[in-house]
Computed example of a mutant assay.
Amino acid sequence: MCRNIRQLHNFEPPATSDEVRAAALQYVRKVSGSSKPSQANQEAFDAAVEEVAASTQRLLDQLTTAAPPKDREVEAEKARERARKRYAQTG
């Protein structure tokens, strides 16, 4: 899917509504093939973002797991380390 959409389930603290909406926006952008819709499509684009965000929030609210919640800072550091390795200059 899209690299900008991150896992939102099972984090402490839980995903915020802003994070859910950002993921929905990225999804709609990817599916529609447009990061900035035309004026003619803006209403449909915005409605889709809101619907996807609402569905995503319902999903997150209903998911259960026995796994302990992940720490956001630890996961962010792991991601930064992966990025450092991926983009490291070899020479």
Rank of each mutant, 00 (worst) to 15 (best):
M1D: 07
M1F: 14
C2E: 12
C2Q: 13
R3T: 03
R3Y: 06
R3D: 12
I5V: 15
I5W: 04
I5R: 07
R6N: 05
R6Y: 01
R6S: 08
Q7M: 07
L8H: 03
L8S: 04
H9R: 08
H9F: 15
H9Q: 09
N10M: 08
N10W: 04
N10G: 11
N10Q: 09
E12R: 15
E12L: 12
E12V: 06
E12K: 13
P13K: 05
P14K: 12
T16S: 15
T16W: 08
T16G: 09
T16V: 05
S17C: 08
D18E: 12
E19G: 04
E19C: 09
V20D: 05
V20N: 05
V20T: 07
R21T: 12
R21Y: 11
R21W: 09
Y27D: 01
V28Y: 00
K30I: 00
V31P: 01
S32P: 05
S32V: 00
G33I: 08
S34L: 12
S35A: 13
S35I: 13
K36Y: 11
P37V: 08
P37W: 07
S38F: 07
Q39Y: 11
N41V: 01
N41I: 05
N41S: 07
Q42C: 03
E43H: 10
E43W: 02
A44P: 00
A44S: 05
F45A: 04
F45L: 04
F45E: 03
D46H: 01
A47D: 12
A47F: 06
A47Y: 12
A48Q: 11
A48M: 11
A48L: 08
V49Y: 05
E50F: 01
E50C: 02
E51R: 13
E51S: 10
V52S: 00
A53Q: 10
S55Q: 13
S55G: 13
S55I: 02
T56D: 02
T56L: 15
Q57T: 10
Q57W: 08
R58E: 12
R58F: 09
D61L: 13
D61M: 11
D61V: 06
D61A: 15
D61G: 15
Q62A: 13
Q62C: 09
Q62S: 15
Q62R: 15
L63W: 03
L63M: 15
L63P: 01
T64Q: 14
T65R: 07
A66N: 15
A67F: 10
A67V: 06
A67W: 02
P68F: 03
P69Q: 04
P69M: 06
K70M: 12
D71W: 04
R72P: 03
E73G: 12
K78S: 07
K78E: 14
A79W: 10
R80Y: 09
R80V: 10
R82E: 15
R82W: 07
R82V: 10
R82M: 11
A83I: 10
R84I: 11
K85Q: 14
K85Y: 04
K85V: 07
R86A: 13
Y87H: 15
Y87K: 09
T90N: 06
